[in-house]
Design a protein around this nucleic acid. Structure first.
Lengths: 154, 154
DNA sequence: CTGCCTGCAAACTCTTTGCACGAAT
DNA sequence: ATTCGTGCAAAGAGTTTGCAGGCAG
């Protein structure tokens, strides 16, 4: 079950924005925060429906932006057509790089403390001020290439 | 007009792969290499049709992967729904960061030689070997914010 | 001639939206 | 009571694909 603290954060965010707490939003919230790995909208729908079968795809898509704006989720776009999301843990590192394994399709997030410096360096050459940035690395799994199985895949 | 050298490169790539040179592929090729800025599939279609009106959308979409595999074009995904492409100049820098201006929607590419080091560092922590990487920065235009017009927009 | 290429249109994937009903405040 | 939120299904955007005919090699 999701932590009461996070649930309160969600509730107060909704209240602050004049939005209502509904059973569907709560189901989606619990489903999202219960995920260990990155997940897609479709996967979130599936898990939310396990909690409340009345949840619709439309509501998932309408709730996702609410949760990202409230900083409960982070959107992770790896340029693969569909967007991924992941819980944004309290006090989480905002300077992260995504490493996408081309063999197991898994997304790893690694602290990248120097990224803001990179962004500033690169933007200042253009007279621009960075708003957000991401470092995305596609990488292959050495073990998989050798043994034919990715050790992280299980 | 496109350089004969690049056209030869395209021709020999096609030959090597057992693919045929057609008037449509040549029109798409010339249209693509004639672009100064990043362009979308739709924009490429438009320009290719100005050269050969028989070019279809399907052929553009079928030719784009051929041109990216032959390293004549580079795909630039800024996570905006549609993909962008740009000519990949001979001896071009593979270590580039994309800076997307949120005010003028333009995409700038900046040499970022530190990136490969960072990709290696980050990947090795996971036992992975980097295949490709990109730093993507969203930035705002200071001049635009002050004066209401982006100096690069003209 | 063989079989790769083509245009057309339909299909596909992911996401967004209009509508009328239902529920939270 | 008011609104806002919802499910449904249709609409969108961007891209891919099946098919029958056409052209390169």
């Amino acid at each position: 079950m999701t932590s009461p603290a996070a649930r309160d954060k969600f509730r107060s965010f909704l209240a602050k924005k004049g939005l209502r707490m509904t059973s569907q939003r709560l189901a989606i919230f619990d489903a999202a925060l219960g995920q260990a790995e990155h997940f897609t909208a479709e996967q979130l729908l599936e898990h939310a429906r396990a909690i409340d079968s009345s949840v619709s795809r439309a509501t998932v898509y309408r709730t996702l932006p609410i949760m990202t704006k409230s900083a409960l989720l982070r959107e992770v776009d790896i340029g693969s057509g569909e967007k991924f999301y992941r819980p944004n843990q309290e006090g989480g590192d905002q300077q992260v790089a995504q490493v996408v394994c081309v063999d197991c399709d898994r997304i790893f997030e690694i602290s990248a403390p120097f990224m803001s410096w990179y962004g500033n360096t690169v933007s200042s050459k253009l007279g621009l001020t960075p708003v957000s940035q991401r470092l995305q690395v596609s990488a292959q799994c050495d073990t998989f290439r050798r043994t034919g199985s990715c050790p992280r895949r299980g």
